[in-house]
Simulated scan of single mutants.
Amino acid sequence: MRSTGIAAAVSGLTLALACQHVSAQSSVTLYGMTDLSIRYLTNVDAQNDSRLFMTNGAVINSHVGLQGAEDLGGGLKAVFQLESNINPQNGSLGDSGRLFDSTADVGLAGDFGTLTLGRQTTPLFNQLVFTYDPLTYANYPENSWLPYALGAGLTVDNSIKYVGQFGGLYIGAIYSFGNNYEPSGADGFSGQVPGHMGAGNMFGFLASYADGPLSIGAGVQQVSDNSNNKQTLYHADIRYVISQTKLYLGYMHSQDNTGLVDALLAEQPIPDIGQLKNTDRIDDGPFAGVSWQVSAPLLLTGAVYYDHMRNAATGSNTLGSGSRYTAVALAEYSLSKRTEVYGTVDFNKVNGAATVELPGRSNQTGIAIGMRNFF
């Protein structure tokens, strides 16, 4: 009798929740991806030591999230998303150690587009990285392509974000109310200064258009530190699809007076960020790539990235010019719709001021094999 009663109660509760779900037209989805690889890396330090280790993916970092929507009627929906990066090799939280370091937002969506508030990825990240970068955001920290040097400019706190898709036209814009762009060291940030409305803020705008096989995009993003020094990035990108092949071409230009780029690309922590401010560091970063769907399960991708820097910190209290060259090859094989194995090889070479990024033999080779599962 007791078991029957419990079963009836559970059935009644399930039916009630189902009815509520139908009437409200609401949904909550758990999603994520686990990606682990074994990676070998040469010249990891000034002594040219090598390293063999397990790492959180070589293509996309592991993450878990919740996203939901509630139908408010009249074509309007309330939406939310919570996402956290994780390190499956040891079970820890990723990046900053926040519970939801990737995304934590809420907003409204309709025919006009989507307007959200909270901690969010920028339009630069959403479109450039996932549409125009042939490798998405593979190995940014180790390959040190320019978007990684933006650091806090890829995911921002205290922000209002708008995205809209109108046929082939995509528009994205974001504004952050004091996003704490004031490094207190190599990777720490302090808060916005009261009374300085323009300091510590950021904004970004991006537009792209797709017509058949061709997609083009361009945008600008600017961050300010608490002294109102600026880091400004411009980019323009093209993707063209030919049968089973995608061709990529892009260009980025960055001008930095905040010290963020120097601090994030340096191999060793910067003890005093102040010495890197107002140096007018310039980076020009063209890139190109191709991906080929050889067969239903096999995808091959190759990409090259270049960064030419001027007025860059050399590590000896001087500024100089230099370059970084990066080439990456990636092979992905799908075992199912959710699971794939992959292998990747990447090579980096630096000269001039860029040697602070690879202080050993000024070059580095990485090899990784891994597996990922989406859910």
Rank of each mutant, 00 (worst) to 15 (best):
residue 326 T to G: 04
residue 122 T to L: 03
residue 109 A to H: 04
residue 265 L to M: 09
residue 303 A to H: 03
residue 22 V to E: 10
residue 223 V to I: 15
residue 322 G to E: 11
residue 70 E to A: 15
residue 219 G to R: 05
residue 291 S to V: 04
residue 223 V to T: 08
residue 330 L to W: 10
residue 322 G to P: 08
residue 354 A to L: 13
residue 309 M to D: 05
residue 304 V to G: 12
residue 73 G to C: 09
residue 148 Y to P: 00
residue 264 L to S: 07
residue 181 Y to I: 04
residue 139 N to I: 05
residue 224 S to D: 00
residue 319 L to K: 07
residue 371 M to N: 08
residue 227 S to G: 11
residue 111 D to W: 02
residue 65 G to P: 08
residue 239 R to E: 03
residue 53 F to W: 09
residue 11 S to H: 05
residue 253 H to S: 08
residue 312 A to Q: 08
residue 80 F to D: 01
residue 213 P to E: 06
residue 197 M to T: 14
residue 251 Y to G: 10
residue 90 N to M: 05
residue 319 L to G: 08
residue 6 I to K: 14
residue 297 P to R: 08
residue 19 C to K: 13
residue 225 D to W: 08
residue 292 W to G: 00
residue 10 V to E: 06
residue 356 V to A: 03
residue 161 K to G: 07
residue 226 N to S: 13
residue 92 S to Q: 13
residue 71 D to Q: 11
residue 42 T to H: 13
residue 338 R to Q: 13
residue 160 I to Q: 06
residue 63 H to T: 13
residue 165 Q to Y: 05
residue 81 Q to D: 14
residue 197 M to I: 10
residue 79 V to R: 05
residue 118 G to S: 06
residue 213 P to L: 06
residue 144 S to F: 13
residue 284 D to M: 09
residue 142 E to S: 12
residue 272 D to N: 15
residue 8 A to K: 10
residue 87 N to V: 12
residue 353 A to M: 11
residue 152 A to H: 01
residue 245 T to R: 04
residue 48 N to M: 09
